[in-house]
Amino acid sequence: MSEARANILARLRAAPRLQPPERPQWQAPGFNDRLDRFRVMIEAVHGEVHLVSADTWRAHLRKVLAEKNVARVLAAPHLGLDWDDMVAYDAPVEDFKDQLVSGIDAAVTTTRGAIAETGSLVVVPDMDEPRLASLLPPIHVALLNAGDIADNLAQIMEKQGWAAAMPTNLLLISGPSKTADIEQTLAYGVHGPKELIVLVLQ
């Protein structure tokens, strides 16, 4: 072990020991209509929400993609999308980078749920839906089951048992990529998607 490590820890241990304070009560808010709150919040940050049924979402998605003049779509095969120009993220990024960086118009991913309070999607990338899928293409379409919307972050963390098994990467996504670095003027799509479309499956 490094000398720096030993020195730092020794200095910290030589400091006065203070009693760790208890965490005082605090309750994150709950909502009667979680879907409504989710929708209001994510729309407020430029997200687009479509309520669809579990049977018809693929047809609806086709319509949305067509309206947005999307050509190439990135999606995992198991989603069963019906689209002519469709690619899967089935190679390591090293072999797929060029296409991913500039050759795809929209990516479709699943989500692991959402948070009503802040209008956030919980996205856990995996082998079929790698991390960059929801980031590099200019449009990100996220599929969300209406039943998976929790009140708040603390609740969904606990319910889904995050702490016991953190994945390589876990994301909360609340709207498309944005910046206000130039004169506090909002601009979208600075690095990530310019558009975030959420299909809520009811």
Partner: peptide
């Protein structure tokens, strides 16, 4: 209310992961 992204990283790329 929250930033656009909250990025929780717990490991490097695992076997089978593509990026």
């Amino acid at each position: 209310a929250i930033t656009t992204y909250v990025n929780m990283i717990s490991s490097p790329r695992k076997a089978g992961e593509k990026d």
